[in-house]
Simulated assay, not measured.
Amino acid sequence: MTNLFSSFDPSTSTSISLNWISTTVGIIAVPVLYWLVPSRFMALWKTITFVLHKEFKTLLGPFSLGSSLIFISLFTIIVYNNFLGLFPYIFTSTSHLTLTLTLALPLWVSFMIFGWINNTTHMLAHLVPQGTPPVLMPFMVCIETISNLIRPGTLAVRLAANMIAGHLLLTLLGNTGSLISTKIFPILIITQIALLVLESAVAIIQSYVFAVLSTLYSSEVT
């Protein structure tokens, strides 16, 4: 390891960047699920999908079947890559802005195009919150416009920063293992296990936050 951030570098020693393969390796297991007898894992995943659909349906309204499937798929790919990055020597693709911006930017652009073409009056009304004094209206329009423009960036940076922060902490503590005494070593192991459990929770929470915020942004343009 040349430096602390080398584990988040997607380039490898070869001419082809092999680390990005971890993002799409889950597609190999998808066709198998169509031929196997439904297992407990599949029953659990169907339950999670149904709960997410009900959650997104509440945010999107009655005509939400196609839209909720898009956001459930978004949640699935993010949580899969988050968990995959917890395994040793596997590149966490969601810690790279290349992937997170690729997910956030097209969604936001499509929401904006749809909203401004079909609901122009509704989009203009969002720039001035209800009850704003007339004196503050020009400032509120500027503030709301800026907050709207930085939405894809905040989505991407939030996910990438949370993935990097926990992995860096695990890496820092792991590198000190050879430097500490044997008396403190059990404390280090317990701390690493606790951080791993915390990272597992963060992997789910950040995927859910990304999907829910994308759902909220889409519900504002309709």
Rank of each mutant, 00 (worst) to 15 (best):
N3K: 13
N3T: 14
L4S: 09
F5D: 06
S6Y: 03
D9K: 04
S11Y: 14
S15W: 12
S17Y: 13
L18D: 03
W20R: 06
W20K: 04
I21Y: 12
G26E: 07
I28T: 11
V30W: 12
L33T: 12
Y34P: 02
W35S: 11
V37W: 14
V37Y: 15
S39A: 11
R40A: 15
F41W: 15
F41S: 12
W45Q: 06
F50P: 04
L52A: 01
H53C: 03
F56H: 00
G61D: 03
L65W: 13
S68E: 01
F71Y: 04
L74V: 03
F75T: 01
I78N: 02
P88W: 08
P88E: 14
Y89E: 06
T92W: 06
S93Y: 04
S93H: 05
T94Y: 01
L97F: 14
L99Q: 00
L103R: 00
L105I: 12
V109S: 09
F114V: 06
I117K: 05
I117V: 08
T120M: 06
A125R: 10
A125F: 13
H126Y: 15
L127Y: 08
L127C: 11
T132G: 02
L136C: 11
V141L: 08
C142G: 15
E144K: 13
I146Q: 07
I150S: 03
R151I: 13
T154V: 14
T154R: 05
L155A: 05
A165L: 12
L169I: 10
L170S: 04
L170Q: 04
L172Y: 10
L172D: 08
L173Y: 01
G174W: 09
G177K: 13
G177A: 09
S178H: 09
L179K: 07
I180R: 09
S181Q: 04
P186Y: 15
P186S: 08
L188K: 00
V197C: 06
V197L: 11
V197T: 10
L198A: 10
L198G: 06
S200H: 11
V202T: 05
A203W: 10
A203T: 00
I204W: 07
I204D: 01
S214H: 00
S218D: 03
V221C: 00
